[in-house]
Design a protein around this nucleic acid. Structure first.
Lengths: 200, 200
DNA sequence: ATTCTATATGTAAATATTGACATATGATAT
DNA sequence: ATATCATATGTCAATATTTACATATAGAAT
C-alpha cells in the first residue's frame, strides 16, 4: 500500500467521495501536507478497489456527468487504523526555498530580499486562511475538536500543524530578508556587531 | 535543469567535491531540506557536465580508490546565481505524520500517544544537533554569519530554518500527544486568552 | 451560436526517486 | 586468512509523480 493510498483511505474514512471529489480534497485540508493530481488518484483508486480496500457505486446525475462514488470497506478501515500508529517512513522534507537560501550569498541582495519578502507574504496569507478555518472550527465544533476519537479533532490537529508551520516559515523568511537588508534581529534577545568581511 | 542539479551546484559553488562527497553532504547540512541517493547523484553529475555546468578531474589516491573531483564552471555559477532569486516552483510539503494525524481519530489512543511522543523526541534530538551546530557557527564564524555575501551566512540561514522547523514540529507533536492523553493545553508560552471550555 | 467553466473520468509519456544489483580498493578488526 | 567497513563509482528495475493528451456533460456567459 502506498502513502497516497492511505491518504485516500483517510479521506474516505470520513465520507464517501468520487475521484473528482478526492482531487479537490487534495488541494485543501489534507492537501496541505499531501497532494496528488487526478492522474495519480484514478489509478490508485482502481488499485485500492482491486485490493478490496474500497468499493464504488455509480451515481447518475441529471445536471452533471455521472460519477463513481467510492466508500471505504471494513478491510480498508482496519488497514488504515493499523497504519495510523505505525512509525512514519523517514522522508527528507524537500524545500526549494531553503536550498536557494543555501546559495543566497551568490545573489544580488535586492533581488534576494525581494524573494524572501514575497515568500514571507505567501506564508502569512496561508496562515491567515488557516486561522480563519481554525476560528470557524473552534466556534462551530468546539467540543468535537477536543475529542481524540472525533474526526474533527484529527482535522483540527492537522490544521494546527499547518498554522505552526506557516507561522514559523513566515518568521524565517522575514529574518532572512531583514538580515540581507542589514536590519537588526527583531527580538530584543540577540546583539549584533557590524563587520563587513569579504570571503574568497 | 532539475532542482537536484541546483542542489549540487550549490554545494560545488562552495568547494570542489566528488560524487561520493556530494552524497555525504546530502545527508548533512543541505540534506536537511533536500536529499538524494548516489544513484541519482552520479547520473545528474554526468548531465551537469554535459551541459557545461561542472567539470571534473581525476584524483589518484594511494590509501583509497581514485576519485573524480567536480568543480563548478563560470557558466554553472551564473546559472545558479540566477536561479537563487527566482520564485520557487510550488511544491506541497509532504508529511506522512500529518497524514496520520488526520486519521488519528480511528486509532487506539495509547498507541497514537506513543507515536507522537516518539516523534516529539526525534525532533527534539534533531533540534539539539542543530543547536550545537549553531553554537559552533556563531562562536567560530560569528562575523561571517552576518554577511549576506558569505557562504557562512547562507549555511547559517538554512540552519536556522532547520531549528525553527524542528522546534515547531516537536511542539506540535507534544500538543497532539497531550491532547490524546487528555492533558490541558500547554501553558507557559501559549496565549492564555484561549478560553478552554470543559465539555459536558 | 460559441466560448468558457466546472464537473467528471480516464490514459500515456516523461521525469523524479528509491532500492537493488554490481564492482573495486585499502584499512582495520577478529 | 578473512570479514567488515569506509571509500569510491556506476547501472538497472521498479515506483512515484508530473505534464500532457483525450473525452464528455451541462450550465453560464458573451
Amino acid at each position: 500500500m502506498t502513502t497516497l493510498g492511505y491518504a485516500i483511505l483517510g479521506l474516505l474514512a470520513q465520507e464517501a467521495l468520487s475521484g473528482y471529489d478526492l482531487t479537490q480534497r487534495m488541494k485543501g485540508r489534507v492537501g496541505n501536507f499531501w497532494s496528488a493530481r487526478h492522474s495519480q488518484i484514478y489509478p490508485e483508486l482502481a488499485r485500492l478497489e482491486e485490493g478490496g480496500y474500497v468499493k464504488h457505486s455509480l451515481i447518475e446525475q441529471q445536471d452533471r456527468p455521472n460519477k463513481k462514488v467510492y466508500e471505504i470497506t471494513a478491510d480498508g478501515l482496519e488497514t488504515l487504523r493499523i497504519w495510523v500508529t505505525e512509525p512514519p517512513s523517514p522522508r527528507t522534507p524537500k524545500d526549494e526555498l531553503v536550498l536557494k537560501a543555501y546559495s543566497v550569498w551568490l545573489a544580488n541582495p535586492e533581488k534576494a530580499a525581494r524573494l524572501f519578502r514575497d515568500e514571507e507574504l505567501r506564508h502569512e496569507e496561508q496562515l491567515t486562511r488557516y486561522k480563519k478555518t481554525r476560528k470557524w472550527m473552534e466556534s462551530e465544533h468546539g467540543e468535537e475538536v477536543e475529542c481524540p476519537d472525533s474526526p474533527w479533532f484529527a482535522g483540527y490537529a492537522s490544521l494546527r500543524r499547518g498554522i505552526g508551520y506557516e507561522k514559523e516559515y513566515a518568521q524565517w523568511c522575514r529574518w532572512v530578508a531583514d538580515s540581507i537588508e542589514g536590519k537588526p534581529d527583531a527580538p530584543a534577545k540577540r546583539k549584533k556587531k557590524k563587520g563587513k568581511k569579504k570571503r574568497a
